Simulated scan of single mutants.
Amino acid sequence: MSYKNKLSLPCLAGHTNDIMATSDLPTSPPGMMLIRAGCALAYQATQPLALLLLVKPHVAPSQILVRDMLETSSSQALEEFTDAHGNTLVRTTLLPGTTRFRHDALILVPESPHELPAGVERVPIARLPPDALRYTFASRYCESDKLAQFANQHFGHIDDAAEQVRAVCDWTHTHIAYRYGSGTPFLSACDVIARGYGVCRDYAHVMIALCRALDIPARYVAGHMPYLGVSEADIGIDFHAYCEVFLGDRWHVFDPRHRRVHRGRVKIAHGMDAVDAAFGTMYGAAQLVDFQVWAYEITDPNEAIGGPVSIMRGADGSAVRTLAA
């Protein structure tokens, strides 16, 4: 696999080398774990077209991007910028033929999964922060306006905001059957409720739409979910979609697909729905001809980004398949 152009993205101590062993990294802070996550993509185009890539991990106090690197086989420039939701995108041009991309990163994340604290309250619309207010609106895949009556019939009797959101999460998990590979870019929350099955993005859209119908801000999140206590059959080799709901004074994580929040997850992006968090957006016709995703806890101090990765791991952590550098 040949990569010509590299966007080396140092985040700590000004490192600029493309391959760096984890033994060169600072010791993980208490309560944090080191995750390696990335993807390898290949697009085939017949004419030049613009491409937006959304694969870089989100940076926040609870998620520290230690080091990452993006490589491409193309000679075209890679331009990095931030969108209206605070996500980091890379813009480039696909030329005729096959163009490969590989992103690899080391991220510090909390060891324990997120738990909703007791006593958290709903924030009245009049007091919502402006950046949370937008996530009360209906969107293309989350038609909360069409689901207002449905949401109030099922959840309007629950006074406690945290319990109300938990009830929405439980209902979505229980009433939507998981079918890997059944997702399409044309299904909305209403469509998924009507047919009764979907993939993780469909679960997220349903829960988000129902929360917004109850005037609770909710947003779509895309990211990585490592194999930590779950099997490959449970999550698949893919990016993962879940939700964040605004209660109290901050955003709280919910995963209606699994009914619980897994440890080690790596957030990439958030937005109104899947439109704002797609890993690749093309302005023209191109085909995705190769797709690999990896995410796992670092245990070998000699492992380095830019080198070989284990892209599939069993529930016991043993490597099942590897991707060469």
Rank of each mutant, 00 (worst) to 15 (best):
H205W: 01
C142Q: 01
S28A: 07
L214S: 05
A118E: 14
P29Q: 07
K267V: 14
F254T: 02
L94Y: 00
I125Y: 11
I35M: 14
T82R: 14
V120L: 03
V245H: 07
G198P: 12
D160K: 14
R140L: 05
V275Y: 10
A209S: 07
V245L: 06
E115T: 14
A118Q: 09
A177Y: 03
K146R: 05
D131S: 10
H224E: 11
H85T: 04
I311E: 04
F150Q: 09
G156I: 15
V168N: 08
K267Y: 03
R179G: 04
V109L: 05
D104R: 06
P10E: 03
G307F: 02
D104E: 06
P124V: 10
I64C: 08
Y220N: 04
L210C: 07
W171M: 12
K267N: 07
N17W: 13
Y283G: 04
I176T: 05
S28G: 07
I158Y: 10
A286Y: 05
D83E: 02
F239G: 05
R91L: 06
A222W: 08
A233W: 10
Q44D: 06
S23W: 15
F155W: 13
H154L: 15
L133Q: 08
A286T: 09
Y135R: 03
V90P: 00
C39H: 00
A315G: 12
S139Q: 01
G31Q: 13
M207K: 06
A162Y: 10
T174C: 10
E80S: 14
I193R: 03
